[in-house]
């Protein structure tokens, strides 16, 4: 599926570019160092797993994603699944980038 979206939109940001940007945002929001966010995998828990990620922090995270990834996140987009793991958030960001 990733290969298809990549070929459908060859000028869009690559999957690894989105991944890098998303890790940088989480690094800033959670005050982690690069090594720690590098260790995030698809199953790393976010909302509900990290006490720092309260609603204010998640709002900041989403607004920063809009800014740095040049996407618009609607209310309906935000659900538990999207925020639960790093993999879920990355898949969402990739889908939004292709859509945008």
């Amino acid at each position: 599926m990733t290969a298809e979206t990549a070929s459908a939109d060859p000028t869009g940001p690559s999957r690894s570019a989105i991944d890098t940007t998303l890790r940088a945002i989480l690094r800033d929001v959670l005050a982690l160092d690069d090594g720690q966010v590098e260790g995030f995998d698809g199953d790393t828990g976010l909302f509900g797993h990290l006490p720092e990620l309260d609603s204010m922090a998640v709002a900041g995270l989403l607004t920063e994603m809009e800014d740095r990834l040049d996407i618009v996140i609607d209310d309906d987009d935000v659900d538990g699944e999207m925020l639960e793991t790093y993999g879920g958030l990355l898949a969402f960001a990739e889908a939004k980038t292709v859509e945008g």
Binding site: S55, M56, V58, A59, G60, L62, T63, D75, V78
Partner: peptide, 9 residues
């Protein structure tokens, strides 16, 4: 927008 979003969350 960020303030409003925090409230909706």
């Amino acid at each position: 927008r960020s303030l409003a979003r925090a409230r909706t969350l």
